[in-house]
């Protein structure tokens, strides 16, 4: 069971959240061209290890938050508000 520390609400169970994927991808400028949008929409690093990702606290404060989570241990390293930058631990 993931217990996610929402920066607004505190520690909550994963069922209150909706997963929204990789939080490192950035929408390119509108005129960036087809390749940039192809990468943005479709390609993912999909790392085996630490992953910065969006979780939407749908049944709580309704905010999108960032979570640094490990994809093999499911350990959560840190959480932050949507506009904060997240550091991924080495290892």
């Amino acid at each position: 069971m993931h217990r996610i520390d929402c920066p607004w609400c505190g520690l909550r169970d994963e069922i209150e959240f909706a997963y929204r994927g990789d939080a490192t991808v950035r929408r390119p400028p509108a005129d960036a061209g087809i390749d940039a949008f192809y990468e943005y929409v479709y390609l993912r690093d999909n790392p085996r290890g630490w992953h910065v990702e969006w979780w939407h606290h749908a049944a709580g404060c309704r905010q999108w938050i960032k979570v640094v989570r490990h994809t093999t241990t499911h350990a959560i390293h840190a959480t932050a508000k949507a506009d904060e930058d997240m550091q991924v631990p080495r290892s």
């Binding site: 609400c9 520690l11 909550r12 069922i15 049944a59 404060c61």
Partner: peptide, 18 residues
């Protein structure tokens, strides 16, 4: 699923949850 123990939750506290 949230902890309502008086140590962490008391009158005046609130939560939006399920």
């Amino acid at each position: 699923r949230i902890d309502l123990h008086p140590r962490v939750f008391a009158p005046g506290r609130s939560a939006v949850t399920q």
